[in-house]
Amino acid sequence: MNSKINKSCTSEIPIGGTLYIVEASVSDTAQETVISKVKRLILNNTDTAEKLSEQTQNQSEKDSTSPG
C-alpha cells in the first residue's frame, strides 16, 4: 500500500484588517528553492529591480526622518 505523508502546513497571519491564509507544501520534484521562486516572483512583478530598491530606500529614509 502506498501511503502519502502530509508535507504541508497552513498558517493564518493577520496583517492590518486582512487575514492571510498561507499553505506551504514540499515537492520532491521541485526545480527551484523557495528563495529563488519568491525572488523571481518579486522581480517579475516590478518594473525593474532598481525601482523596487529606490522605493525601499526612500521609505527607509522617510521612516528615519519622521518625528517619533
Rank of each mutant, 00 (worst) to 15 (best):
K37A: 10
K7I: 04
G68S: 14
S25W: 06
D47Y: 12
K51I: 13
K7Q: 09
E50G: 08
E23N: 10
R40G: 03
T46A: 14
N2M: 05
T18Q: 06
N45K: 03
K37H: 08
I42N: 04
Q59E: 09
E12N: 12
S27Y: 01
N44V: 04
I5S: 13
I21H: 09
I21K: 15
T46Y: 15
I13F: 01
S64R: 11
T18D: 04
E12A: 09
V26F: 14
A24C: 12
Y20Q: 01
K62A: 15
L19D: 01
N58K: 09
N2I: 04
Q59W: 06
V38E: 02
K51A: 14
N44S: 12
V26H: 13
I15R: 04
S60A: 14
S66I: 14
T10C: 05
G16W: 00
L41E: 13
I13A: 01
R40C: 06
I15A: 02
T18P: 00
Q55N: 09
K7N: 10
K39I: 03
P14V: 02
I21D: 02
T33I: 05
T10W: 00
T65L: 15
I5G: 03
I13Y: 00
T33Y: 02
V26E: 15
I35Y: 07
N2Q: 10
N44D: 13
I15G: 00
T46S: 13
